[in-house]
Design a protein around this nucleic acid. Structure first.
Lengths: 112, 112
DNA sequence: ACAACATACAACCAAACGGTTGTATGTTGT
DNA sequence: ACAACATACAACCGTTTGGTTGTATGTTGT
């Protein structure tokens, strides 16, 4: 039960950090967090094929970092700030682990 | 000048997010944030070869997420919380971009 | 001195990644 | 109806990734 949820969380983490590990994808994410953009509007901004940009958008979508909604023949992509926050909270957990270590050191120093 | 700094930052971001995109590496990072561990002590914890774990440690080190110090024949790895914070601040920048969008929407709604 | 240990690194391999081109499927405007 | 547009997706290709084994180098304790 617990390990299954952890497994799912780790999988989400894998997908999110992987999605964020590419420059073009981070740039796309900035644009779609600032506002809705169609896939072709996004593609115009980069020096690569439409298909390449479309794949990057798909990676971000699979990671949950953006969602798409249809508007006529266009697919409008929009950044999901909640997903960004969930990545932040994973990092906050890491910082929390570190703080525990520092607290242990402080306690040791004060008691000796 | 500015673009060179951005280039360096993007490269750091690439390395950090890539380092964080692997389960085993995130787990290693948790351990070394909690306290110093030798590479072989870390390797004992995982169902893979010593060399594989050593490579994971090297990836985390190149990304600046951990540092090593020699102690006799051991190499003690320690997590760098500042690097974790710098990743957090990249995400905070994304959230800031999103907030700008929301503010623009709010302003529009109030003025109309 | 030397055996055991801790680490690093090269060479190799299958799988995944980031890009390409080409094709299929909807949607729009005339 | 149909030409143009917007998107999706398959097939392919060179590079990178995450793993392996084997070997070299340094350090320790007896």
């Amino acid at each position: 039960m617990l390990s299954l949820m952890d497994e799912a969380n780790e999988e989400r983490a894998d997908a999110m950090f992987h999605a964020l590990s590419d420059r073009t994808r981070r740039d796309i994410l900035r644009r779609v967090l600032a506002g809705e953009h169609s896939v072709s509007a996004l593609a115009e901004r980069y020096d690569m094929s439409f298909a390449a940009v479309q794949k990057h958008v798909a990676v971000l979508e699979r990671a949950g970092l953006l969602t798409k909604r249809r508007s006529g023949r266009q697919q409008l992509a929009s950044g999901d700030v909640e997903a960004v926050r969930s990545v932040s909270s994973m990092l906050a957990e890491l910082e929390h682990i570190w703080r525990g270590r520092i607290d242990r050191i402080d306690t040791f120093l004060k008691e000796n």
